[in-house]
Amino acid sequence: MTRSFTLVQLRYFCAVAEQENMTAAAAALNVTQSTLSSAVAQLEQVMGTPLFTRLPRRGLRLTRAGRRLRESALLLLEDADQLPGAVREEGPVLAGDLTVGVFGPLAPFRASVILEEFEREHPGVTLSFLEGDQEFLRRALRDGKCELALMYDLGLGGELPRRVLRRVPPHVIVSPEHPLAAVPGQPVSLRELAAEPLILLDLPHSREYYLSLFKLLGVAPRIRHRASGYETVRAFVARGHGYSVLNQRLPHDLTYAGSPVVPLPVAEELPPIEVLLVRPGGTRPTLKSKAFEEICLRVYGVTPVVSID
């Protein structure tokens, strides 16, 4: 027996999956909650399995079947949106929503530039960024909350398809009053700095990476402060509370408070961090996410040889 469903039901289902809340999804779609609930219930009946787990006071969560349906529904809805243009033999005009994860410390460096480029080339797509740490983004990819993510190669494992956009070596920052600041650009030994107070960027997986650099050199750092904010780390260093090791570097060396830090290259050869574009495993990318990938490659100056799909 043929089981029928409508594109409207799929759109409603995808909206609920994104919001994880029936009331919020109804408001976003400008429909009544009863209309939305009925559409989802009918879709569950057609599919023959629950698509959401109802969590008291915590909203809705996709079941495994729901995640699979969402992956297929996004592609089907996109193909449906392209159908009129295909009939008229026109090129694809992208429309709809695209959610992209971005690692917090990376967001200030590239997100606004990528957003500007993307909106100029694809004005019909609403691009939203989901910002968080590495573990948050890994879960967001798994749960279908974002179609791809701009993140580091830390704590990912080997199951997620990824594209390397840039390799960023570690560098040291010190205050202008630090003796090493007297010779800007002079490489400094991380091994020799280990006895001084360290301001550690304390994010999941990031802290393990930074501590591993000292371990490779056979020394243990003297951690004075831990901070989860990139700018907090820089501010502590600028005020003379210690030095730090970071990877991304701003085009200027001022902190939010106006005090400068002095960046210095590391004398030892240490592993860089890779900036990646990551997708969920086992999914076919949408046209919108492919367009985002192309712009990322251009912004980062990467030659598009092999796609990550």
Rank of each mutant, 00 (worst) to 15 (best):
G124F: 02
Y152T: 14
R138A: 11
V183A: 08
V174M: 10
V172P: 14
P179F: 08
A181I: 12
V172Q: 14
R167D: 15
E119F: 04
P169Y: 01
L150V: 05
G101E: 12
A107S: 07
R139D: 10
P161K: 02
H122F: 06
V174L: 12
P176W: 02
Q134D: 13
E119G: 00
P105L: 09
G132C: 07
L160G: 06
L160W: 08
D133F: 00
P184E: 13
F136L: 10
L127E: 05
E135N: 05
A107I: 01
V113T: 14
L165Y: 10
F136A: 12
R138V: 10
A111D: 12
F136D: 15
P169S: 05
Q134A: 15
L148G: 11
E177A: 12
F118M: 05
V172C: 15
F103R: 01
P179V: 07
D153W: 09
A182W: 14
G144E: 10
D133T: 01
H122V: 03
L165H: 13
R142C: 12
L160T: 05
L148Y: 02
P170K: 00
G155N: 10
V164L: 14
D153G: 12
L137Y: 09
P179T: 08
V164T: 15
K145D: 10
P187Q: 04
V113S: 09
P176L: 00
G104H: 05
R163S: 12
E119N: 05
V174G: 05
G185I: 11
E116P: 07
E147V: 06
R110K: 09
